[in-house]
Structure formats: structure tokens, C-alpha cells
Design a protein around this nucleic acid. Structure first.
Length: 826
RNA sequence: GCGGAAGUGGCGGAACUGGUAGACGCGCUGGACUUAGGAUCCAGUGGGGCAACCCGUGGGGGUUCGAGUCCCCCCUUUCGCACCA
């Protein structure tokens, strides 16, 4: 290499022109393909490691940096595990069904079945160009009949287990997408995709009984290696509440006796229940309505039914109507009026509440609007029990019961228990746990999804499609635009839905709804190892071998839904005996978001960054490195192209150093080689610790630091000083690592070379700089040997006049932290 | 309103269990080499001060020999959920 030393003692390097990222990257991508470097021996691999990333929706715009950021983060993790000796399976696939694709197809006037393959081809090109260690022989797409055949099979398993059922329900209806949305797809009362206000509609829908698994889904979280924020999100979504169900006897308008059951978390306040509210959809509404109130009630019901869910869910304005009937408060045994109001939701609890205006904000507000009685039964410490109300008192700490008969003076917790026990003796109460988690509506009145494998026969009723008849192919239809009939576009194709009943052979019709995209993605990780096995959804042995997933990386936007649904499906299949694990992902980490100019990237903002041109300019290795260096992987960061050059320079220097080391052959080590070796071993240690923690930015910084030490002054690097760095950098910049590894004379892939070990003794400094403080203020630094003791350090410090001048008289106290600092307190 | 996360130089960010704040990178300043350089290399770079020193991690208190880190109160940003009884 052309290194010369000028008279100013400043080394001059000629630019390392030989490093041509494009050429190197093309060469190695070809090599990997030819040699099958990234392919895994699915059935024979020992020490398997499943490094999964959330599969993307193959959009027409192609892969953007947000996708790539996530994929590269996973790839680094996977490659690192491979260097640790695991057989790493890093599959790739496409979540290609769904409203996204369908809407786009409608917009551009092309059929999704022709769009999707184009998009997939484009994604694949981009992913390969980025150099991911993907085993392409195991790829899948949810739109492939060989895949969705088994999605339909999963549906049938849930049906078999009694966990799929059909019911008519008020559902979220998007008037623009003309389809039903899951609760989860409604954001702030608006459609997640098109932002149109959502309305309610009544439709027959297929549901999965996920609520039955709420307790397990919640409890298992304690044992998962997931980030706490994700677990918290899941816990909140599941929403466990402990309380009691109380029974309020009532008499209907026609004089019949019946009960209304309510759920409450505050049974201690039952003496303060001065009225009762049932949801407009409550089954007893009709019977409880007195003739005199009929007109008013009907009017109110009509108004709320028309009301879209936005107003209903977001408005806190209290509306309601009196039924004309009364219930008996089981505690006071007094009559209380029964009201109908839309602030009580039929989907939660029992659809009826006991209203305690003195101790619940919503009940208080309602009572104020309608002039209902307010009775205080809990009194805060030091409060006057007879004072007036200006708001509800919802606290409980230090509070005592009042106006509650024999329970007066009890604290809230004791009263909760005692009152439920007392009412239970009359069969008027029992402790209950409630969850906010609703059953999962999987029906979609759309075209672009797997048809739900059900046949309706006039004679036999609801008949599941026999497993041997799967898949129920999604027919190619030109006219797939949804209409507002509430039916899927497939319902317009009689030739498709007319079918013989599998049981009696008579005339029957297919279910014309397709299933939710979340069902496609709720089991894809089970499929990857078994891709190519056309006789089963997932091969038993391969599944036991590779699953559960060792490490899963994905976006936090899926922290709740996708993760919850896939946990549920896994749990059900486990219960059916298909495999022996019940949680799909041992470890999950959410990556951060890449933003641009402080805003989330989106088409509408026009700030989407497509990686292609950056890769063309800087190379995939530099671009990967840059993405990982711009911030902590789990936090993301702002994309700004200015600083890519820093990572590129690092790779240039690495290249130059390695090539120089090779050229210098067996030249004797330089004088400072001990320092360099110490730094090298520290770097191996740090990169080995940071990488599995996904602390990629600091791992890269550590490697940069080492390069700075290595190149310090005019020294010529030696082979043993650079060779391990090639291994360290390999997960981050795989192409340049392979090339340099080959130039270093190796014939095997650097990814099969293992991870360099570090010498703990060598990695420790023998002399350290300790801080000297006087009264906690930094006054100087001392170079001492690592094992210097307190007295010795103090002596050295006092010998330094710049320190000693701050110490007058005898120190009161000496704090000494070996190897770190000395604090003299005077 | 409830819940989560976060406020550190001009910028992105380091600082693992309380122990030298600002690693690493970008940018900037000066210099070297150059016909030239947006290439490469060297040096410097939190603010103030000639200096000794002083001030600095959103603001205010506190605990401690010592606080970016722990505790209390407030402010700001951001992302979820929103009448769940």
C-alpha cells in the first residue's frame, strides 16, 4: 500500500480505491446463492435457532427504510447467533392478503392476484440486495393456496374445539371500505385505514372465543422474555378486573319477577346505589319498559341505534331515559329506578350497572343531568359525611364506610369482602373476574382473503368443509369491489357459492365472507419450517425441532393484536395436542420507528425513504451500518442521509487496514502492539455483549474506536490485529466481511468461522485513571495501577499540588472506589 | 382522563448495578497533501473566563461523601387506550 511519511511527521494515505462496495456485494450475493450459504438443513440441523422477524405486507411502493431497519436488525441478530455456532433459520414471507392490497388494487384498477406477485418480486430483489441471511427455499406468501389451505384448516380446528361461533352482533362498519372492522382496527372511532368515521351495523359474524383464554394469555406473560412495555400493553388490552356480580330483583312492566345482574369492582358502595342503568341493547329493555314510558324509550333506542360508534365511544355527554320500572337494592332493600343509557356497554360485564353517583364519576355526571338521588356511603379520612357533593369521591385510601348499616366504619377493602359475603348468603352476590378482551371477529365482507371454509345447508345447517376438500379456492373474479349490501363480493358469484352439501349432497351455499388478515399471520411462524410439506399445516417433528421461535423482532404496532392472536392460536393448537409448547415466541423485542424530519414516514407526507438509491450510492453494508448506528435499535430515530458517510469511512478504513496488514506479511509487531491488543480484546468483549442486547449502535461505536486506536499514528496494522475485527463486523456488514475474510486466506464463509474469544486478563487495563474529588468536586486525575489501595491513592493525590490546595487540615472522610475514584471530604 | 416511553453540546446519540457527563459519529474550525477537492490525513471542538476557576443532563425541592441515574412536585414532547362499571 502506498503509505509514505512526510517531513511533518504526518502520514499520508492514498485513498483505498480498491474497495468497491457494489462489486464486493454482487460477488458475495452470487456466492451465497451458489453455495447455499444461507440455506438451513431444516430436518438435520443441530443446535437450531429460529430468528424470526415480522413478515411484511408487500406494498406496491416496495420496501422502505422502516422495513429494512427491522429486517437488518433481525439479520444482525441472526448472523450473530450463527457466529456463536447455532444453525440459524431466518425465513422470509409475505402477508399479502388483506384490505391494503385490495384497496390498492381497486385504486390502480388492477387485479390483486397479478399485483401481488409483482410486488413480491420487487421486495425480494430489495431484500436480497440488502444482504439478508434469508433461507429462500422456505419462503411463503399467505395468498398462496398451499398456505391458505392451512389457514382454513386452522379455522376448522378452532371450530372443532368449539372456539369458533357465529353470532349477530353490532359491529364496526366502515362506510368507505364498506366492511366490518375489528374493534382493534377502529382508531379513535375512525377506520384505521381510511380515517372515515365508523358506524355500527348488525351482521352475522364468525367469532373466535379468545375471551375464554384471557386468563391464560394474561398469566403466561409473567414468564415471557418480552420487553416490559409490550407486556404492559397486552395486560392493559386484556384488562382484568376483579369484582363481584350482584343481583338486583326487579318486577317487569307486566308484573313478572326477574333479576338484573350487574358487575361492579366496588361492591362496598352498594348501599349508595340509588339507581340502575342497563345498556340500550340489554335483553330486558322491552319487558322493563312501562306503557307510560314506551314512546320516550323507543325514541331513545332509535337515536342510539343510529348513532355511530364514534359519538357513542368518544362523547362523555350523558344521555338516557327512564324505563318506568324499579329494582330492589339488595343491600338497602329499597326501590331504585331503572334507566337506559348508552354509557353502559352491552359488551362488558353484564350490560347493566348499579349506579353509585357519590363514588363514580360517570354515575355522578348522569345523576346531575337527570336529578337523581346521590347517597354518600364512603367517607374520606377527615371528611364530613354530611358535606355537599361537588364531584364523586372515587378514592379508597384511609376511607371508611358510612350510611351502610352494619358495615359502617369498615375500610373499603374489608367492606368489599364483607358485603359480598353477606349478600352471597342470600344468593345475591358472587365474586367475579371480568376481562375487557372481546372475542375476535374474523369475518370480513371482502374479496381478498381466504374464504371461510363453511357451507350452509338447509337440511344439515352449518357444515364445515371437510379437511380433505381444502383449500376452498378464492375464485378469480373481475368484479371484486365491495358494495354496501353487507355481503362479500363473492356473494355476487352464484356459480361459486352454490355447492353440494358435503353431508347430504343437497343444494347448499358457501360462506361468502373471507377471514381476517390477522388470522393469516396468527400461525405463519408455524408454517415456515414446514414449507413444502403439502400434506400437513406443520410437520410435527420439524415443529418440535424449530419452535417455539427463539427470537422474534417486530414493530410495536403489533404489540397487542398480532402477538395476542398468534399466542391464542398457538395455545389452542397446543391444547389440541399438536405440539408441546403453548407460547409461540420465547423472546420478543420491538424495534423502534424510523422517522423523517420528525414525522412518521408516510405516503401522504411524502417523506418515505426508499433504500435502493442509498444502497446504490453507499453500498448495502454501509447503509445497514448507518441504519443501526443512527440510534438505539429499540428506539429508532430520525433518518438523515448526511451521516451515512461516517459508517462508510469506517468501512473504508477497515478495508484499508486489513489489506495493509495482509501486505505487510510477517513483519514484527510494533512497539505499541500491547495497547492495541488490549483494545482489541476489550472490543471483542464489548461487541459480544452489546450485539445480543440489540445495542447495535454502541457495538458499532466500539468497533470504530478500535479502528481509531489501530490506525493511530503511522503504525502498520498486523494480521492478528485485524482478523478478529472481520468476524466482529460480519453481522453488520456481511459482504465486506466475507471479502476480507477470503483475502485473509480463508476458504470457508466467515459466518462459519465462529466468534473470536477474548482474553479477560488482556481486556483489563493494568493502569487506570482514577478521578480525585474533594467534597465531590472533580479536582484532578491520577494514573495508577489497577490494584492501588486507598492509602496509596491518597498519598499520590496529596502529592499533587493542584489537588492538595483544596484540602486544608485533616480530611473528615475518605471515599475510595478501587479503580474509579477517590473522594476527599474536608 | 388512564397507561407507556422520553427530555443530555449545533445535531444523532454514549454513560451496564449512584462514582471522571458528552464515548462514537455528523457538522464546524484550523492545518497537511493538492491544479482542484464535496476525496484523504492530522489537530481542535459543551458554555463562560486572559487565567486560577466557575457553570452545565427540561424546571424546583430532597436523599447522599457523590445524582443524568434514586425520591417528591411541576413543565414539555411523544405513542397507545379511551364512558370497561
Amino acid at each position: 500500500m502506498n503509505k509514505t511519511v512526510n517531513t511533518n511527521d504526518q502520514p499520508t494515505f492514498s485513498p483505498p480505491v480498491e474497495y468497491d462496495p457494489q462489486a464486493v456485494e454482487m460477488k458475495w450475493q452470487d456466492r451465497w446463492r451458489e453455495r447455499g450459504t444461507n440455506a438451513v438443513d431444516i430436518s438435520g440441523a443441530r443446535d437450531p435457532y429460529y430468528a424470526l422477524m415480522m413478515f411484511p405486507y408487500p406494498s406496491a411502493e416496495g420496501l422502505h427504510v422502516g422495513n429494512l431497519f427491522a429486517f437488518v436488525g433481525n439479520d444482525i441478530y441472526g448472523r450473530f447467533q450463527r457466529l456463536q455456532g447455532h444453525n440459524v433459520f431466518e425465513p422470509f414471507g409475505y402477508d399479502a392478503f388483506g384490505i391494503h392490497s385490495e384497496n390498492y388494487a381497486l385504486k390502480v384498477g388492477q387485479h390483486p392476484s397479478s399485483l401481488i406477485p409483482q410486488n413480491i418480486a420487487n421486495f425480494e430483489r430489495q431484500v436480497q440486495r440488502a444482504g439478508l441471511m434469508v433461507d429462500w427455499k422456505q419462503k411463503l406468501a399467505t395468498t398462496d393456496p398451499d398456505y391458505y389451505k392451512w389457514t382454513q384448516w386452522v379455522f376448522l380446528q378452532l371450530l372443532k374445539k368449539g372456539l369458533a361461533y357465529k353470532k349477530q352482533a353490532a359491529v364496526n362498519w366502515c362506510p368507505s371500505c364498506k366492511t366490518v372492522l375489528a374493534n382493534e382496527q377502529v382508531v379513535g372511532g375512525r377506520c384505521e385505514r381510511c380515517d372515515t368515521p365508523v358506524e355500527q351495523r348488525l351482521l352475522e359474524q364468525w367469532f373466535f372465543r379468545i375471551s375464554e383464554y384471557a386468563g391464560r394469555l394474561l398469566d403466561n406473560l409473567d414468564h415471557l422474555d418480552w420487553s416490559d412495555s409490550t407486556k404492559t400493553a397486552q395486560r392493559n388490552w386484556i384488562g382484568r378486573s376483579e369484582g363481584a356480580e350482584l343481583v338486583f330483583p326487579v318486577e317487569t312492566a307486566s308484573g313478572e319477577k326477574t333479576d338484573i345482574r350487574v358487575f361492579t369492582t366496588r361492591p362496598d358502595t352498594v348501599f349508595g346505589a340509588t339507581y340502575m342503568v342497563i345498556a340500550p341493547e340489554h335483553p330486558l329493555v322491552e319487558e322493563l319498559t312501562a306503557p307510560s314510558e314506551r314512546a320516550a324509550v323507543e325514541d331513545y333506542l332509535e337515536r342510539t341505534a343510529k348513532q355511530d360508534l364514534v359519538t357513542r365511544k368518544t362523547s362523555t355527554e350523558k344521555t338516557g331515559v327512564f324505563t318506568g320500572s324499579y329494582a330492589i337494592n339488595p343491600a338497602t332493600e329499597k326501590q331504585i329506578p331503572i334507566w337506559i343509557a348508552d354509557y353502559v356497554l352491552m359488551e362488558y360485564g353484564t350490560g347493566a350497572i348499579m349506579a353509585v353517583p357519590a363514588h363514580d364519576d360517570r354515575d355522578f355526571e348522569f345523576a346531575m343531568v337527570f336529578g337523581l338521588r346521590i347517597a354518600r356511603v364512603v367517607c374520606a379520612e377527615g371528611d364530613d359525611p354530611d358535606s355537599d357533593f361537588s364531584s364523586a369521591y372515587t378514592g379508597s385510601e384511609g376511607a371508611r364506610l358510612v350510611n351502610s348499616g352494619e358495615f359502617d366504619g369498615m375500610n373499603v377493602d374489608a367492606a368489599k369482602k364483607a358485603i359480598v359475603e353477606m349478600l352471597a348468603t342470600k344468593a345475591l352476590a358472587k365474586p367475579v373476574v371480568n376481562y375487557r378482551l372481546h372475542d375476535w371477529c374474523i369475518s370480513r365482507q371482502r374479496y381478498w382473503g381466504p374464504p371461510i371454509p363453511i357451507i350452509y345447508c338447509d337440511k344439515c345447517g352449518v357444515v364445515p368443509v371437510p379437511e380433505s376438500d381444502l383449500p376452498v379456492l378464492l375464485p378469480y373474479v373481475e368484479d371484486f369491489k365491495p358494495d354496501d349490501s353487507g355481503l362479500s363480493p363473492l356473494a355476487r358469484h352464484e356459480d361459486w357459492y352454490r355447492v353440494a352439501c358435503p353431508q347430504c349432497g343437497g343444494m347448499a351455499r358457501r360462506e361468502t365472507d373471507v377471514s381476517d388478515t390477522f388470522l393469516d399471520s396468527a400461525w405463519y411462524f408455524l408454517r415456515y419450517p414446514s414449507v413444502g410439506h403439502d400434506d400437513v399445516a406443520f410437520d410435527r417433528e420439524l415443529t418440535q425441532k424449530w419452535l417455539p421461535v427463539d427470537s422474534y423482532i417486530g414493530g410495536n404496532e403489533h404489540a397487542v393484536l398480532h402477538l395476542l392472536y398468534s399466542r391464542f392460536v398457538t395455545m389452542v393448537l397446543h391444547d389440541m395436542g399438536y405440539f408441546d409448547f403453548e407460547e409461540p415466541y420465547v423472546k420478543f423485542r420491538a424495534h423502534g420507528l424510523i422517522i423523517r424530519n420528525g414525522a412518521k414516514m408516510s405516503k401522504s407526507r411524502g417523506n418515505v425513504v426508499i433504500p435502493d438509491e442509498y444502497i446504490a450510492t453507499w453500498g448495502a453494508d454501509a447503509f445497514r451500518g448507518y441504519l443501526m448506528f443512527l440510534g438505539p435499535f429499540e428506539e429508532g430515530g430520525d433518518f438523515r442521509d448526511a451521516s451515512i458517510s461516517g459508517v462508510k469511512r469506517f468501512l473504508d478504513r477497515l478495508w484499508f487496514s486489513v489489506v495493509t496488514a495482509i501486505d505487510s506479511g510477517d513483519a514484527p509487531a510494533a512497539d505499541d502492539s500491547a495497547d492495541v491488543m488490549r483494545k482489541l480484546h476489550q472490543t471483542i468483549k464489548k461487541v459480544g455483549e452489546d450485539t445480543p442486547r440489540l445495542s447495535y449502535n454502541t457495538a458499532i461505536a466500539a468497533m470504530m474506536e478500535y479502528m481509531n486506536v489501530l490506525r493511530r499514528g503511522e503504525r502498520t496494522p498486523r494480521r492478528h490485529e485485524v482478523e478478529p475485527v472481520v468476524q466482529l463486523v460480519a453481522p453488520f456488514a456481511p459482504h465486506i466481511a466475507e471479502e476480507l475474510w477470503e483475502r485473509l486466506g480463508h476458504t470457508e464463509s466467515v459466518f462459519d468461522a465462529g466468534w473470536p474469544s477474548f482474553d479477560a486478563a488482556l481486556a483489563t487495563e493494568e493502569t487506570v485513571e482514577i478521578a480525585v474529588q474533594v467534597n465531590g468536586k472533580l479536582r484532578g486525575r491520577l494514573q495508577v495501577s489497577r490494584d492501588t489501595e486507598k492509602d496509596e491513592a491518597l498519598k499520590l493525590a496529596m502529592a499533587d499540588p493542584t489537588i492538595a490546595k483544596f484540602v486544608s487540615g485533616e480530611p473528615k472522610k475518605i471515599i475510595f472506589v478501587p479503580g474509579r475514584l477517590l473522594n476527599i471530604v474536608v
